[in-house]
Design a protein around this nucleic acid. Structure first.
Length: 282
DNA sequence: CTCGTCCCCTGGGAGC
DNA sequence: TGCTCCCAGGGGACGA
């Protein structure tokens, strides 16, 4: 489900409820998600105050007052929702099967519930100061919305790589936070074929791709992310960037590129669907 | 190292 | 209506 824009949208939605709020207790309804919860996970969270809420790649990071950080990854189908009354109506997305509510955080500000049908998500506690060295983060690539990310660095990053552009962009060790949707969308915006070798980016083309990546991510965050199946914003409302897809899930439809008469195609790369226009992506 | 394939899990939609 | 098959916003473990 969630790529960088969705996680960022969730972060922004949860921040007012979480930052400054104390965790009264945590209820684990099963012992594992993708991985087992660490020993004493719930116990160690009880009584802590959340002081920061950040995002790295597709991870949510809740910094605690004991210099540890609650790390959460939503996998494909994970979602957080906040049930709180101060804002009026209960914030309760109706589409969630309560059988998949796996973790409940009882906060001073309400209940924060983690729901995840496929259980590809995971959570852990890590030392805040050593986060960069944690196995989840040590190998992660550049944040595409950071100042470090631009055409020159992208060209250098991909230099010598024989993997197709699609795979290189999806690889979290290169750029952290892109997923299948936004890779497809960025490549279309840049007019680049997903099949082209990554090492092949000349200077001006690298700049075009970097700009496309940044613009699609920024616009998606602005739109509250993309709601396909399970994704909702933290308050249960839908994102609407899916209405702006140019290629993703548009197989057989007309390319929306200016002056392009092509048709959107789909093919498998690394076991996932790539959507692209063979006419204007070269 | 770098690639591709398979797998984890549940649910929704298409087709018969 | 009900079954089967395919597919899905992620990513880790393999083997070549």
């Amino acid at each position: 489900m969630p790529e960088l824009p969705e996680v960022e949208t969730v972060r922004q939605g949860l921040a007012p409820f979480l930052i400054g709020s104390r965790i009264l207790r945590v209820e684990l309804r099963r012992g594992d998600l993708r991985f087992p919860f660490p020993d004493d996970f719930a116990k160690n969270l009880g009584g802590r105050r959340i002081v920061t809420l950040d995002r790295r790649a597709k991870y949510l990071l809740a910094g605690l007052d004991d210099y540890r950080t609650l790390v959460a990854h939503l996998g494909m189908s994970g979602s957080f929702r906040m049930e709180a009354e101060p804002l009026g109506a209960f914030l309760f997305p109706r589409n969630k099967n309560p059988a998949h509510d796996h973790v409940v955080f009882f906060l001073e500000t309400g209940r924060l519930i983690y729901n995840d049908p496929r259980r590809f998500g995971y959570m852990t506690l890590a030392s805040t100061g050593a986060l960069a060295d944690h196995p989840f983060f040590a190998g992660l690539g550049v944040e595409p919305l950071s100042n470090d990310f631009n055409g020159g660095m992208l060209t250098r990053l991909f230099a010598g790589k024989t993997a197709p552009l699609k795979s290189a962009l999806l690889d979290q060790r290169n750029i952290a936070g892109l997923g299948n949707i936004y890779v497809c969308e960025a490549l279309h915006r840049a007019g680049l074929s997903p099949l082209r070798a990554a090492g092949d980016l000349a200077g001006e083309i690298g700049e075009r791709l970097a700009c496309a990546v940044r613009s699609v991510l920024r616009e998606a965050i602005e739109a509250g992310g993309s709601s396909l199946r399970d994704y909702r914003q933290a308050d249960g409302s839908l994102g609407y960037f899916q209405h702006n897809f140019r290629v993703y899930d548009r197989e057989g439809q007309a390319c929306v590129g200016v002056d392009c008469r092509g048709t959107v195609a789909r093919r498998a790369q690394n076991g996932r669907s790539t959507f692209y226009c063979p006419s204007c992506q070269i």
